[in-house]
């Protein structure tokens, strides 16, 4: 393949950043997108230059570490696929590919394509849990939960926290992430006792982190590698409304 890459380079949060162009050799269609970047980096190192920093870990689409906006689309736009599982066979032989980091105030750039997503962790710390200590839990089958409810909670719980929803949203809103986390817990009977408090605290932290608001464009749902549904945002809107009405 004869690709032209336009890659975002940025030394640190303070640096304004710029695009750099590469024309890597030896790219084949069976490579994953990240393996293609590996090849670029090998070339850079051999030329004595600093390789492109990018986040990645499991390379099997579950850890949520990889975070590339490829041609304007988080994770490259293939349905239900993270950047690490995207393969070069999805591109044309002579394509020009633009690679950028997640762009959001709440996700400051650390270096090149690496961003700081600790805002997500801080949101979870505000209520993304059931307050149950280790030990003392009743027998697991004491609490029957209907399959429908359990499955719906699982649909929400599948979120890998990659932040593609924020990256895709024109407002850099984190509503899909937060609503998935809130809904996972609030749907289940185990999470009900803290449901109101959870949604209030998590939304408040979300606002404080500087994410935008939801304008229901559906971009988040379209790029979510785990296909989390906008319905969870509706549910969180409902939960939050009920919670603040109760006081």
């Amino acid at each position: 393949m004869n690709l032209t890459l336009k890659v975002w380079r940025q030394k640190g949060a303070a640096d304004p950043g710029h695009f750099e162009t590469f024309q890597p050799k030896g790219i084949v269609e069976d490579m994953s997108f990240l393996e293609m970047l590996d090849v670029v980096n090998e070339e850079l190192i051999e030329a004595g230059k600093e390789p492109i920093a990018f986040d990645h870990d499991c390379r099997e689409g579950i850890c949520g570490t990889c975070s590339l906006v490829i041609n304007g689309k988080p994770h490259g736009g293939q349905k239900a696929t993270t950047a690490c599982q995207l393969h070069m066979r999805k591109f044309g032989k002579w394509d020009t590919i633009t690679i950028e980091p997640w762009r959001a105030k709440a996700f400051p750039v650390v270096k090149d394509l690496v961003v700081d997503r600790s805002a997500f962790d801080r949101i979870i710390q505000k209520g993304g849990f059931v307050s149950v200590g280790t030990g003392g839990a009743p027998d697991a089958n004491c609490l029957p939960i209907s399959k429908e409810v359990s499955d719906e909670a699982m649909d929400a719980a599948q979120c890998i926290g990659c932040g593609a929803c924020v990256a895709a949203c024109k407002n850099a809103s984190a509503m899909l992430f937060v609503s998935a986390k809130v809904s996972h817990m609030n749907l289940l009977p185990q999470g009900k006792p803290e449901a109101d408090r959870r949604v209030k605290n998590m939304v408040r932290q979300m606002d404080e982190e500087g994410f935008g608001a939801c304008t229901v464009t559906g971009s988040c749902e379209a790029v979510c590698p785990k296909e989390i549904s906008l319905n969870f945002i509706t549910k969180m809107n409902r939960d939050y409304g009920c919670a603040i009405l109760k006081g």
């Binding site: 336009k6 950043g17 695009f19 906006v69 041609n71 304007g72 689309k73 988080p74 736009g77 633009t98 950028e100 762009r103 959001a104 105030k105 709440a106 895709a168 949203c169 024109k170 407002n171 850099a172 809103s173 500087g210 994410f211 935008g212 608001a213 304008t215 464009t217 559906g218 971009s219 749902e221 379209a222 790029v223």
Partner: peptide, 20 residues
Amino acid sequence: ADNKAARPVAYADATPPAAS
């Protein structure tokens, strides 16, 4: 205003995916 502030640096191609 909040939404604009939430994305200080724009993408090279600023059309958000799938948004009508």
